[in-house]
């Protein structure tokens, strides 16, 4: 039986204004998972997180946390979520200790446990030295950690962070990532980011969102395996005429296509080719066959490299197609407008 997810987002749509908002967003976060909500700025990441935390009501769809529905039992859900919004909005006129006790009370941490819990969390986040300082006097890095402290003070099953590393210096970014990783041992974590490498580094699962819609989701390996139809690709640099080499490789078993990337004449007699495997051919098989075939012809091989499909490619592909579609739509609208004008005139 599948384990019940900590967070279940089911077909959430949030409309506000004609174009903003998110449409039909669905994904899950399971216990022990770190899930990254990845997308360019303005993709709908913050809106999605705000719906999940109950700040914005969804126009349609459901959000469930530990089996409790956000709509039916809002308090049961809120008790189970810790939230670190973008640029954490703290109370500047309180000391760190006062602020954390306030948030602990708000989040129903039992009185008897409050002080011990704050000390514990302060130690873990290295805030012990600043507990007596005013929040408003803290640096950005410290404030981000106070924000994180208030989000976990009540030990919620789900921790939600909106762009937790934005605005931090590189050193603090590394620290924040380490903290998120360490908190994932006790909490299911959902965080948003527009930094691909960060999501790749931290997450078991990635939800790519763009234009208010989920474009793809899965583990990094799952996501990239679908790229280029899941076919293996090998780049070859061989000292031979490009046409001849391409011809020879096309005849091989399991090769579906060969493209000439660079003519031999242009690169000192070394041609560069891209070989695509057919369905079911692994990258290793493909490499073996290519090397044997080329060696058999007596052509020296300079390079044989398996091209890994990267998330970056996927990310660009997803956001580019969107751009292309938009451009297309804009052109169509323009054409229609022009047509309308002609009709009117």
């Amino acid at each position: 039986m599948e384990q019940q997810p900590v967070l279940d987002v089911i077909g959430v749509t949030k409309r506000y204004g004609p174009s903003r908002g998110v449409q039909d967003v669905s994904f899950r976060v399971r216990r022990g998972e770190v899930v990254g909500l990845l997308g360019p700025n303005g993709a709908g990441k913050t809106t999605t997180l705000r719906v999940i935390t109950g700040y914005l009501p969804a126009s349609s769809g459901r959000v469930q946390i530990d089996g409790h529905d956000l709509w039916d039992e809002p308090f049961e859900v809120r008790r189970r979520v810790g939230y670190l919004p973008d640029n954490p909005p703290l109370y500047p006129e309180m000391t760190v200790w006062e602020y954390l006790s306030f948030m602990a009370d708000i989040h129903e941490v039992p009185r008897a446990r409050r002080a011990a819990r704050i000390e514990e969390i302060a130690e873990r986040l290295e805030l012990t030295d600043v507990l007596g300082r005013l929040v408003g006097r803290l640096s950005r890095g410290y404030r981000q950690r106070v924000g994180l402290a208030q989000a976990v003070v009540h030990e919620p099953p789900l921790l939600v962070c909106d762009e937790p590393t934005v605005g931090l210096d590189p050193h603090q970014v590394v620290e924040m990532r380490e903290l998120i990783r360490s908190f994932s041992k006790e909490h299911a974590v959902l965080f948003s980011s527009h930094v691909l490498s960060e999501v790749q580094l931290l997450c078991n699962n990635i939800v790519i969102i763009h234009g208010g819609r989920v474009q793809a989701q899965g583990s990094p390996a799952e996501l990239t395996s679908h790229l280029h139809g899941g076919l293996a690709r090998v780049r070859v640099r061989v000292k031979a005429a490009a046409d001849e080499a391409a011809e020879a490789l096309r005849g091989l078993d399991g090769v579906s296509g060969v493209g000439v990337e660079e003519e031999a004449a242009a690169a000192g007699g070394v041609a560069r080719l891209l070989v695509e495997g057919g369905g079911g051919t692994t990258a290793d098989d493909l490499t073996d066959r290519i090397s044997v075939a080329l060696a058999g012809r007596g052509w020296p091989v300079r390079e044989l490299r398996v091209l890994e499909n990267t998330l970056e490619e996927l990310f660009l592909e997803l956001t580019e197609t969107e751009k292309a579609e938009k451009a297309q739509a804009a052109r169509a609208a323009k054409a229609a407008a022009a047509g309308g004008k002609e009709g009117a005139g």
Binding site: R50, R79, Y83, P85, Y91
Partner: peptide, 14 residues
């Protein structure tokens, strides 16, 4: 103005 209502209204407080 400073967005702190977001933290209160997502906490178990009506």
């Amino acid at each position: 103005r400073n967005g702190s209502d977001e933290l209160i209204l997502t906490a178990p407080v009506s």
